[in-house]
Amino acid sequence: MIAFILRRLLTLIPLLLGITLLVFLLMSLAPGDFLTPVRAQRDVPAELIQAIQTEFGLDQPWYVQYYKWLGNVLQGNLGHSWAFKVPVADLIGQRIWSTFLLSLCAFVFSWAIAIPLGVLAAVYKDSIFDRVSAVLAYAALSIPEFFLALVLVFFAAQTGWFPLGGATSIDYDYLSFGGKMLDRAHHLVLPTLALGIGSIASIMRIMRANFLDSMRAGFVATARAKGLRERVVMFKHVLRNAINPLVSAFGFAFSSLLSGALMVEIVLQYPGLGQLMYQSILREDQFVVLASVMLGCSMLVLGNLLADILLAWSDPRIRLERKK
């Protein structure tokens, strides 16, 4: 097991190297660089631009810049953000909790709703409920996240029931602890909806299909024959078997915890990592972009690893290490 985990983590190294190399190359191909907006300002002395360019190493070819950056990263230094003059790790640390909280809320929200709905749709297959939920699910799947977010912005602006943007209210710092919780929760409602609704639909459809498969399995007949109550058959035996394939979906959900909310954060002005990353890409603040990309990539690998481990744990038929 440990050897398997180590092997999987080792694959991360070439992956990260390749991805960062690609990002560096793409950013060097993009027009302009971090200093371009500064060049467009009328009262910046040419000597200053020259001096900053040398300081940042922007006058060197991209592969030299990459080599230097790599050297720093290997020593555990992700570099300084050029725009913020703050170590990249600190900058990400400032924002990571907001995004994590939002993604987790969306995750809990969508799974908590999708699984029961999927089960009900399977149990009452072909009923009105099943049909309606199918239509809604397809509708939800086909609406892009950012569009849903825009609709929610409009909704919030029209009704005034929910705050527009931000993660806290103006008087947040002066609220009691309970008030802080409520305030955060209030600000989380719309982003959570925007982020969660799409995955409700997909998880629900997967759950329904799995459940239907398991209902046709032989052990269901056995269980019924033993005289178990229908409820026990469904919820204790069928459900446990049907939930297995969702474990791999869980791995994917995990991987998007820190990087999946970019669109929603931008449209709903939620101050998280996605916003920071987007601004950094626009500004060409290289080291921040690289660190965010590495973070997203590592989360993907870790998420998949987690899914595999969970699968092995929950399903005795799966063995991670094949014996020769």
């Binding site: 994590f100 909280l101 809320c105 809990v108 919780m181």
Partner: peptide
């Protein structure tokens, strides 16, 4: 977990 994050965030 969610509650813990909310607590941490607040």
């Amino acid at each position: 977990a969610l509650a813990a994050v909310l607590l941490a965030a607040c």
